[in-house]
Simulated scan of single mutants.
Amino acid sequence: MKITGDQQLIKKMNKTLVLDTIRQRQPLSRADIAATLGLNKATVSSLVSELIESQLVTEIGPGESSGGRKPTLLLFNRGAGYAIGIDIRVNDLFALLVDLEGNVIRERTVPLEDSSPDHAIDQIRKMIHWLSKKAPESPYGIVGIGIGVPGLVDEKSRIVSAPNLGWNNVAVQNLLASEFGENIHIDNEANAGAIGEKLYGAGRDAANLIYISIGVGIGSGMIVGGELYRGISNFSGEVGHMTVSENGPLCRCGNRGCWETLASEKALLDRAAQRWKDSSAASDEEGLDRLLNLARAGDPDALSLLEETGKHLGVGLANLVNILNPELIVIGNRLSMAGDLLQEPMLHTLESRSLSYHMKKTQVAFAELGIRSTALGAASMPITSFLADPDVTSQKTQP
């Protein structure tokens, strides 16, 4: 005899499958859903009616007839609610408001002159309130918030260490939950960037990819079999601390010759400062823009600096290709803006140093989402959590 609880669980699982099918294959009819999932038409019709009642699905009119009555087509209601994604960076905060399909509604960047946790969290609160007020009217309002952080985030969403911010053991989720609800997700910025590119960018068709985030440091997010690989302690992806030069520059981690001491944005600007005797180049947040403008104008020193950085990137990428044999590598964060200048030396070094059989099917691309990868990936996390419970009721959670 079936237990009622089991029946309710099966119904909930089927409802989730129906909603996911509509999201992925829209527009489609009830009959299309039944054929796709192998469910009977009566069950599908009942579940669709509930999804329409909860305003997650809408009917848009008749489709093509296959001989009988024209079927009514269904669409996922992407405007049923909105989410906020925030990218905490060393010099600023970047945030955006998206609908339930990840379409950007509004975005904003504010400087982070004081990177202390108290000040940064106060700025995050202000960003959330500002973006919430810009959200269009909807049944569910703001369904949740996702935040990407340049550091280690444990299984409980505590920021264990973010050296470039000077943070240790900061419970951002707990500090925000009382004001903005429980659907708040904190993750490493490269993990969020990997998810963003997988869902909305260069990795849409790849089941196995490595997203390389290159800013002040270098981190990575790895998608394996369509799922984010986190490691035993949730700390996977610190590829910036892979040793690529035994006696190389001293790294902030205490080791020498880490990849990020040679191939990061900071490493590039440090070399530029040494070459041009410009002490502000390493700290000036506009330094990369100035360097790229000079390179594109043909400045030989700027071109030489970027060529050197491209070669250093290629060395690290070759290690990753030889070890992981990925389907796709996506280069993201701020240094992706230099893609056209880095690509040739980077790929030449990669191809000359990687094993030919490993490299044969590996593609390398620059982030399609640009500097939005992390914020969009972060915003997708509360959306996924929200839609995982198809029994939600239309009650606003907007701050």
Rank of each mutant, 00 (worst) to 15 (best):
K70Y: 03
A295V: 04
L262G: 14
R252M: 02
L328V: 03
T4W: 02
V172A: 09
D299E: 13
L313K: 03
V48Y: 12
M127T: 11
V160W: 12
L93M: 09
S280N: 12
P139G: 04
E260H: 12
L387R: 06
N77G: 04
D20L: 03
G314R: 04
I218T: 13
P382L: 01
I22P: 11
D99R: 07
D187W: 07
E327W: 12
A177Y: 03
A272F: 07
K15E: 07
E246Y: 15
P399R: 08
T43P: 05
L387A: 07
I86G: 15
A80I: 10
A135Y: 04
L97H: 01
I84T: 10
I145P: 15
I60T: 15
L262P: 08
K361W: 04
D187S: 13
G310W: 00
Q8R: 02
E101A: 04
S336Q: 10
G5P: 01
A120W: 06
G141S: 10
L328D: 15
E189F: 11
I22L: 11
I22M: 10
M222C: 09
R30N: 13
S373A: 14
K277Q: 15
T362E: 10
P117N: 01
A83M: 08
T349F: 04
E197G: 03
K361A: 02
